[in-house]
């Protein structure tokens, strides 16, 4: 159950972005994050944590959208590149274990979906 810790980091990061960009409370519709499949994170639990943690903040009412990123690797022995059948960390061509991960460890905020505010508003 580390989803609340990670949810806390997501909310802190989102709030810092909103304030750094001068976006008003209520402007955020959705925060989009990439989560590599190496992380043992339960998406529904992270969404639940996010929704609970943004209450009474300038991001209140926004959604969290998670983009899962598959685990891919490159084989140092034969040069093969492709998706791994986790939990096996073996080359898809020559079965070597001498591989390096290309994707799958992501844990970052990718974009913010915000309401357009015209200058004439109010």
């Amino acid at each position: 159950m580390h989803e609340f810790s990670i949810g806390q980091s997501v909310v802190q990061t989102v709030l810092a972005e909103l304030s750094g960009r001068g976006l008003p409370p209520g402007a955020l519709r959705a925060a989009r994050i990439a989560v590599g499949s190496m992380h043992q994170i339960v998406p529904d639990t992270l969404v639940f944590a996010y929704e609970a943690l943004v209450r009474d903040t300038p991001a209140a009412g926004s959604r969290l959208v998670i983009r899962p990123v598959p685990v891919t690797a490159r084989c140092k022995a034969c040069g093969w590149q492709g998706a791994l059948e986790v939990p096996l960390f073996l080359c898809g061509a020559c079965q070597s274990g001498e591989i390096e991960l290309i994707t799958g460890m992501e844990l970052h905020l990718e974009s913010l979906e915000v309401e357009e505010h015209g200058d004439a508003e109010h």
Binding site: I6, I33, S111, E116
Partner: peptide
């Protein structure tokens, strides 16, 4: 209301890091 997509790239474990 129209929405705008703002691209950002921020490590979510930044504070722990």
């Amino acid at each position: 209301m129209a929405t705008q997509n703002i691209k950002v790239y921020k490590d979510l474990m930044g504070e722990n890091e």
